[in-house]
């Protein structure tokens, strides 16, 4: 009895909203979705849009050393930055850094993903180990690399001397270029896990019947790799590459921890250079200009890459 009594009012309650279609309610329904997303839109505006706009504003302003905006400066900051003696070198370093780290880590990460996709004993452990470099703070990673390659107390020298391969401590960083190469190596090391996991997720979604069919048709390993695997993980690779271009281009901790861009901007990238401009030289307007230049370069690179690969994907 009581169950029936309780159940009855429910459908009765449900009916009024259905039938009631007054203009106020319709209007409410129309704006309802916007109200739902309002909090996140506001959060994004506060934490993403406003900072971006204020960087653009700063780059076009005359900013005092203490960070006060003194007035409009047109393209003055950009002209000063581009004419600066170090800018060309820094831009070149940035491109070398980004291309070297992204390309090499993508290739190595892809190979590693192929290996980890095979069935073997201890695969889970191996996968967990791959995550380690990713899960460690970049500052710690860079400090450890610095510790490894140090001439006076580095573990690499100690190891090689203990093994009897070298007799005297070797200076692994005799030139700025050598230092930069070590930084790139560190960058690759910490970027590989991300690529590996992106590709691995792609690999796992490939239906094994494709490979079986190919085997039946007599395809060899390389044919299967290039005709089946690569096309099918391309979307994962695109995602990882675009994200990596952005992350690596903007990466600050490795270079800052290892060399601070020394000597004389020879290992600076745009990001470390703008940090020095802003907080060591107190030229925040120019730093903002460098930041905007970096933003535009990234925007162009990432869009070109995405349009190119996605369109190709559509054609296929």
């Amino acid at each position: 009895m009581s169950k029936v009594a309780q159940k009855k009012p429910v459908p009765a309650k449900m009916t009024p909203p259905r039938s009631g279609n007054s203009p106020a309610k319709r209007a409410l329904r129309r704006i309802e979705p916007y109200i739902w997303i309002a909090p996140s839109v506001i959060l994004m505006a506060v934490f993403i849009l406003i900072p971006i706009l204020s960087v653009f504003q700063m780059s076009l302003s005359d900013v005092s050393k203490a960070g006060k905006i003194k007035g409009f400066n047109g393209l003055g900051n950009f002209i000063k930055v581009v004419k600066g003696s170090a800018f060309g070198l820094v831009l070149q370093n940035t491109l070398v850094w980004t291309i070297a780290v992204v390309v090499l880590s993508t290739v190595l990460g892809f190979v590693l993903a192929l290996i980890l996709n095979n069935k073997f004993r201890g695969r889970k452990v191996a996968r967990a180990i791959v995550v380690f470099p990713w899960a460690t703070t970049l500052v710690i990673q860079a400090s450890v690399w610095n510790f490894i390659i140090n001439t006076d107390y580095g573990t690499l020298n100690t190891l090689l001397m203990k093994l009897g391969i070298i007799k005297q401590a070797v200076n692994w960083t005799p030139t700025p270029e050598a230092y930069f190469a070590w930084e790139i190596a560190c960058g690759i090391f910490v970027t590989i896990p991300f690529v590996t996991f992106c590709v691995l997720s792609g690999l796992q979604s490939i239906d094994t019947t494709y490979y079986e069919a190919a085997t039946v048709d007599g395809a060899n390993y390389w044919q299967k790799l290039f005709k089946i695997t690569l096309p099918l993980v391309k979307s994962s690779l695109t995602v990882s590459t675009v994200l990596n271009i952005i992350y690596v281009f903007n990466s600050f901790p490795i270079i800052w921890t290892m060399t601070k861009g020394d000597p004389a901007n020879h290992t600076d990238t745009l990001v470390t250079y703008l940090y020095k401009l802003a907080f060591y030289n107190g030229r925040q307007g120019e730093a903002a200009a460098v930041s905007v230049i970096g933003f535009l370069i990234l925007l162009v690179c990432a869009s070109v890459y995405m349009i190119y690969t996605l369109r190709k994907g559509d054609d296929n």
Binding site: K65, N265, H266, K276, Y280, N281
Partner: peptide, 20 residues
């Protein structure tokens, strides 16, 4: 002096360029 920040970074840069 107001130029100190630039001088400080400037002399460091001179030293490092001279080292190279």
């Amino acid at each position: 002096k107001a130029e100190w920040a630039d001088v400080k970074q400037g002399v460091i840069n001179v030293e490092q360029q001279a080292l190279l």
